[in-house]
């Protein structure tokens, strides 16, 4: 699985991309977030307010109950502020 982080999530986590094999117990985006926050204080800080974070799987916005596959590209980012 490929995970991308943008804006202040990227800064807090300290990387913009990482790849790893999806652990078996992770089924949804929410599971993934809960697993990521155990990986270090940067992650815990980035996901401290999960309600404001948006997730995209394979370039589409998804809700946190979306099921994940090991081939997915998952992105986490703050609310968008373009335009």
């Amino acid at each position: 699985m490929k995970i991308l982080y943008f804006a202040w999530l990227r800064q807090r986590i300290g990387t913009d991309t990482e790849e790893f094999v999806l652990p078996n117990e992770i089924e949804t985006v929410e599971d993934l977030i809960n697993w990521l926050i155990t990986r270090g204080s940067g992650y815990a800080d980035a996901f401290a307010k999960p309600e404001i974070i948006r997730a995209a799987v394979n370039l589409e916005y998804v809700s946190f109950d979306h099921s994940l596959d090991d081939e997915d590209e998952v992105a986490f980012f703050p609310p968008v502020t373009g335009g």
């Binding site: 943008f6 916005y61 992105a75 703050p78 609310p79 968008v80 502020t81 373009g82 335009g83």
Partner: peptide, 30 residues
Amino acid sequence: LMDWLKTEAPFWKLEETHSGNDWVDKRESD
């Protein structure tokens, strides 16, 4: 197009000011 772009297109603005850098917050009005 502008209203949807504001809320759907994945862009983020970082403002560089004389007192530091800040990520722009989203606006409820958008």
